[in-house]
Write a protein that binds this DNA or RNA. Structure first.
Lengths: 214, 214
DNA sequence: CGACTATTTGAGGCGTATCAAGAAGTGTGG
DNA sequence: CCACACTTCTTGATACGCCTCAAATAGTCG
């Protein structure tokens, strides 16, 4: 049984028993796979959240994607992972051995087609992110981030962000301080509220105005 | 017969007669397909060069890719093109109707697999570009651009760039002036030369030093 | 409680954008 | 072929958005 998601960057396929999936759990901060390692598995998030990123030799980091519940990550065309993937909170994933998936894909055109859809959806997200990174200012970036997370986490306007400000900054091509300042400014101008005792819990008060900013 | 390219962002499949490809020519500046239009064809560059870009309502533009000889573009998962594609010089393309390609793909797992490889290669390029746009400074961006174009155009260190400085700027998330200044500085410091009577003809003198900059 | 990390906020600096002007290159009509 | 208009490219002066550095506050975990 293959399930399709309406979330443009959510998985197109659900990893099924026929792929011989196993389960694995990672604590917050643990690495799931490393940049350059042999890519011999793909993953689906069951619970938790994951960041996929590249780093330059001097430590600059670009997070290319956050993987949330039901998202699939780790698909590679080449031999090695081009990213490091780390759990950003305690996370459980399904693991499918790549060899098995590829074997099934040679037999089943539908599986290959679903992989294609998944890759294309990831590509669409990357292309939108290129516009964001190359041409948007810091306010537009942070507003777009909040709306993306709202859409992907719940759609209710109440966000429990799993990632730090640093993660957000490295996703948006900004510094921590700039992210913090933009959030503060959105709060001051009445577009959102922080939870009393948790800075990562954010309530979007005026999503329409945030949307106009992007 | 399917051909594979060693160029990571070159096409994996060659559009073949079995897809009922036809040929079309576009003059410099002409639109091949528009953002939002119904995506009913995919293209392979035979001669010339193409830019694919998105624009914001206020005119800011992000070029997501340059398509050179043998590159395939215009593949979409959804109904509509997410880009505008324009010829940046006089260009001839092969055109395959999407319906036909998709029909063949349902029958031939190899075709679907090749589309997957193509999408994955495009994705890899987009992910590298995210690092460039989000975390590199203007010198690193321009150096990376020159090396990419050298690799894709010839590999000889002698570049006949088809695109304007503005196109380069919109590809790198910079302004025309900054691109021009970086190129001038590379020239002053002996890393490259401009042709006598054509500013788009560039000879890379010290590619090793350019590589160290990226 | 104490050590540590995450976040916010302020002051000041830097890198790239903006604005402006001139030079170089291109295309068109005479 | 030149004259002219137009676009592209370069270069300089200045502005400003975001980064850097610093320090205080808030939150987390032993």
């Amino acid at each position: 049984m293959l399930s399709r998601s309406t979330n443009p960057i959510a998985p197109v396929i659900t990893i099924h028993a026929k792929f011989g999936a196993s389960e694995a759990t990672f604590l917050s901060g643990q690495e799931i796979h490393g940049q350059g390692e042999r890519a011999d598995a793909i993953y689906e998030v069951q619970r938790g959240a994951v960041r996929s990123y590249k780093t330059l030799s001097d430590g600059r980091r670009q997070i290319c994607a956050f993987h949330l519940q039901d998202d699939i990550f780790g698909w590679e065309n080449g031999l090695n992972y081009r990213f490091t993937a780390e759990a950003i909170v305690d996370t459980t994933v399904l693991v499918v051995r790549r060899q098995i998936l590829e074997y099934v894909a040679t037999k089943d055109v539908q599986v290959t087609h679903d992989l294609l859809s998944m890759a294309t959806n990831t590509l669409e997200h990357a292309e939108d992110q290129m516009m964001l990174l190359g041409r948007k200012n810091s306010g537009e970036k942070v507003a777009a981030f909040l709306l993306e997370m709202d859409r992907r986490l719940s759609g209710t306007g109440v966000l429990a962000l799993p990632m730090t400000r640093r993660d957000i900054a490295d996703y948006l091509g900004l510094t921590v301080e700039t992210v913090s300042r933009e959030l503060s400014q959105f709060r001051t101008s009445g577009m959102l509220m922080f939870s009393e005792n948790n800075q990562r819990r954010i309530v979007l008060i005026d999503r329409q105005r945030l949307r106009r900013l992007t």
